[in-house]
Nucleic acid binder design. Structure first.
Lengths: 198, 198
DNA sequence: ACAGCAATTGAATGATCATTCAAGTTCAGT
DNA sequence: ACTGAACTTGAATGATCATTCAATTGCTGT
């Protein structure tokens, strides 16, 4: 294993970008907190933006093992997986006092316009996230209305999560997140009830 | 009128914070684009964060005349006001090629954690926005289910808007926004249909 | 033992950062 | 005309920004 240093830089950068944002995080801070010299960082990453790209690649790799698989093993019911995932994000908010939020969502709003090279990497993260949910919804296809667009619904779940997190952070309260999830649950109840009627 | 300068600084700062984010916008850029010297800016605003606070106060003042009133005059049906407002945001995305997004949402994710003094100002903006929607929903109360929590639903509309904008920007496509609005419309249809049954 | 490359050191670079301030200008009230 | 305050000028401040690089160390294959 050559580069344990590289991994430490990556972890530290990911944490600081999450805590402070990309522009607000200086290379010097990353170096200090990772216990590394400038030359080492620039040995592995040509510049700050490449470091960010590597962080986003890392998130991409962590999606299945860290985000999706735990819900898949915890819940056999695919609909419960969806709300288990939302509960997991909620737990993150609770643990941090409604801070941090979604690392990818934060970078999305900060950098989508101004960093054309990283925007696609954020996009892929969101797409993979939604695809994972969509697979769950496909497993519940027979309980949903026949005309239910599951790809659209999976993206909607991401919408609700990101929008709910945003309001939870600004209000410093879990209530807007919980309320958003409650309305989503209500919508699911109606979808599942409609099918039962058929 | 003494301070037309103050207004120009405020407008320029608002635009640049929207286009580039807060941390990524340097005072020098604001000065250049507003055609103002450093001393003038610091005559009106003690520091960068106070300038940001003034920008957020300005957004607060613009909510009713710029955001709410146009929908209220355009649509008498309160439910159509909701979707008219979403269509207005959509038009903004379309006009900019899915850039910029919601100025307040952007600042919310960038600064909620790290700038404790401005977080409440962002919060107030969101609360006023949701309160405006809630008033519309109250006007449609008799068409909605009796147990419908309209405050919760108004916040949900904000959730859908912000979450939809985020995905539209990262994917550089209106589709996720349109899809999110479509699911919200479906939910409203179900709410309105349920009532009709009573 | 040695060649050669990967990894690391850490000081230096010039640009840009937010902010300051003494000196000047403009203008309303008298 | 004169006072005083509001406003503007614009150069200077020191801190921090991302990045560079020549020199040094550590390790791997022979």
């Amino acid at each position: 294993m050559p580069p344990e240093t590289r991994e430490r830089i990556l972890e530290t950068a990911a944490r600081l970008f999450h805590e402070q944002g990309y522009a607000a995080t200086g290379i010097a801070t990353i170096l200090r907190e990772a216990g590394v010299n400038a030359g080492s960082l620039y040995h592995f990453f040509p510049n700050k933006e490449a470091l960010l790209a590597a962080v986003l690649k890392r998130y991409e790799a962590l999606l299945q093992p860290v985000v999706l698989t735990p819900q898949e093993t915890a819940h056999s019911d695919p609909v419960e997986r969806v709300f288990g995932l939302l509960a997991w994000y909620r737990a993150g908010l609770e643990a941090t006092g409604c801070r941090l939020g979604c690392p990818i969502g934060n970078l999305a709003l900060e950098l989508s316009d101004t960093h054309p090279e990283v925007r696609p990497l954020i996009d892929v993260n969101f797409r993979n996230w939604a695809s994972g949910i969509e697979r769950w919804l496909d497993d519940a296809a027979e309980r949903l209305p026949r005309d239910c667009d599951r790809a659209r619904l999976s993206r909607f779940i991401l919408t609700v999560m990101e929008g709910g997190i945003m309001q939870a952070r600004t209000s410093n309260s879990l209530e807007p997140f919980d309320d958003s999830v409650a309305v989503l649950r209500d919508h699911f109840d109606r979808l599942l009830r409609e099918k039962r009627r058929n």
